[in-house]
Amino acid sequence: MTTIANYLVNLLHLPGWVSAWFVALMAALVIFGFMMGVVLVLIWLLRKIFGFMQIRLGPMMHGPQGIFQTPADALKLLAKEDVIPDRADKWVFVIAPLVVFVPAYMVYVVIPFGEGSRFIAKDLNIGILYIAAISSMAVIGIIMAGWASENKYSLLGALRGAAQLVSYEVPMALAFMGPVILAGSLSMQSIVKAQTGGFWHWHFLQPWGLGLLGFLLMITAALAETNQVPFDLPEAESELVAGYNTEYSGMKFGLFFMAEFANTFTLCAITTTLFLGGWHSPFPHFLDGGWWSLLWFLGKSGFLVFVFMWIRATYPRVRVDQLMEFAWKGLIPVGLFYLIAVAFFAVVV
């Protein structure tokens, strides 16, 4: 991509910074396209896997195995009338979906899809901190949506959602810290490189099997952060209609929906990067590096997405008080123990 940009710059006699901006713009577009693709595929997969697990077929009508069902739904959402409730706070109501969607998109900047700089938009040296910071902004969007709707179900859903997201950010940040200590860096590519040399070097087993604790912590917190069963209280349809997005229709609802599915994939990708060796192959020198790395990365993330859906199809929902207690009295002490244990092994052993 840099070569194309340089060629264009030379051809048209443009100043040097245009090339850098061109590359950045192209990267942004590629990521956006990828994100849309991921969302469409995930929604279809979710329906098919749910169908399979509940012994039914799932979408079958449009295309082979109903593969065109999601594009059709997306078109329907685009064409739908965009209703803003009469008593809603218009500006806040309109901006809220964007505040939820944009962080979900921005996080993709630092995800290392493969080896080298061509599979990552920008390897920031604060990589994982950037992810934690950017994704914490989405909470504001949820609160805005719930408040601006002037609807008690929306408000309750937003309160629950915000409380849940804020609580589960803490164990997730603690789970982030283990791989960061082991790799000695916050950069995503450095964390992947620290796991070179076969699956027994991956952080979910390092050091001495302790990583498993961090890995489970990460998975649990990720389920809660994406509002998935058993932690889907913000949108518990039997209690809250649909939660904070009750009043939203058309593409504004679509943005919430896309952000949620994009986040599911992002969190699986982050878990892969931190604990499952990122784009490394499970065996040293076996199809490692180059374009294979992309395949390994997508394969591992895809498998995690499947596990998430599996959990989602299996468990019932927890209660609000159980949810909060589980985070503050269960996960956070475990996370602190994990952090101290990893630090101990990193310094002493």
Partner: peptide, 26 residues
């Protein structure tokens, strides 16, 4: 100061502003 920027967003936007909004909603 990238680290400060990250922490600024995480603490001030992600925690303090959220807390203020929470208090107002309640």
């Amino acid at each position: 100061a990238e680290f400060l920027a990250g922490v600024q967003v995480m603490i001030y936007v992600g925690a303090i502003a959220v807390l203020v909004l929470f208090a107002i909603m309640l």
